[in-house]
Amino acid sequence: MEKDGTSLAAFSTDASCGPTETAATLIEDVRRGLVRDPAAARAAAVRLVTLLTLSGAAEGTRGGLAPWQKRRVDRHLRRSLHRPLRLEELAEQAALSVSHFARAFKDSFGTTPHSYITGLRLQRAQRLMLTTGEPLSQIALACGLANQAHLSKLFRRWFGETPSAWRRRNLTAQAVTPTTVSSPRTPS
């Protein structure tokens, strides 16, 4: 995933691409961005090219987590986002040593466990911002983040805008047309 631009794409848990955006969603982002924000459209187009390039290269790779391990770890992560997660705990879910798990996780999901967890937490925060009236401080805690400042710092790094600005923009846009939750990008 690229650092620049904001996307309105959802995570895909497809075995070949891990926590990446779907091609159809990225195409929609490009189309929508051409009208609203050409810079965001360009960023979505770059992510689309990256997705298509990486998905072809990943098909011939070996290693990584077995499908049952990947499902089990992902399910555990999604259930436990509200609290601190340790690498040892995740490795235990896959019945692997910590070092082997970290390498296999990156091979399977395309990113480090820390980055993947951060992306899931931000995705949950976005969903809560759109579906509840909770203050950002409560949303941050519900997503396993230390406080509102932590949420704001990560959100700005991944999406290029503050959570309150994103919430305002998307609640306004949602009143006009339904939108999907943005997929976080990996900061560089």
Rank of each mutant, 00 (worst) to 15 (best):
M1S: 15
E2H: 07
E2K: 04
A9K: 00
S12T: 07
C17L: 08
P19D: 02
T20L: 09
T20I: 01
E21Q: 12
E21D: 09
A24K: 11
L26R: 02
L26K: 01
L26H: 01
L26M: 06
R36N: 11
D37F: 10
P38S: 10
A41T: 14
A41P: 15
R42T: 15
A43P: 09
A44K: 02
R47T: 12
T50M: 09
L51T: 04
L52C: 09
T53M: 00
T53A: 10
L54F: 06
A57L: 15
A57V: 12
E59C: 13
G60V: 14
T61A: 14
T61K: 14
G63H: 05
L65W: 02
L65Y: 00
L65F: 01
W68I: 08
W68R: 11
K70Q: 05
R72M: 05
V73N: 03
V73Q: 01
D74Q: 13
D74P: 01
H76Y: 14
R78C: 08
L81S: 10
H82S: 08
R83P: 03
R83K: 12
P84K: 02
E89K: 01
L90I: 04
E92D: 04
E92Y: 03
Q93P: 00
Q93K: 01
A95Q: 08
A95G: 05
H100T: 05
H100S: 06
F101A: 03
A104N: 05
F105K: 01
K106V: 13
K106Q: 14
F109Q: 05
F109L: 06
T111I: 08
T112A: 10
T112F: 09
H114F: 08
H114L: 08
Y116D: 03
T118Q: 00
T118C: 01
G119S: 13
G119P: 12
L120G: 00
L120N: 00
R121P: 02
R121L: 01
L122M: 06
Q123F: 15
Q123Y: 14
A125S: 12
A125H: 05
Q126D: 15
R127S: 13
L128H: 07
T131Q: 14
T131A: 14
P135V: 08
S137E: 11
S137A: 11
L141N: 00
A142Y: 02
C143S: 02
N147M: 02
A149E: 09
A149S: 09
H150G: 00
S152G: 10
K153L: 02
F155E: 09
R157A: 06
W158A: 11
W158L: 07
W158Q: 06
F159I: 07
E161S: 10
S164F: 03
W166D: 13
R167S: 15
R168P: 08
R169S: 01
N170R: 06
N170E: 05
L171H: 12
A173E: 14
Q174P: 05
Q174Y: 15
A175C: 12
V176E: 14
P178L: 08
T179D: 11
V181A: 10
S182W: 05
P184Y: 03
S188Q: 08
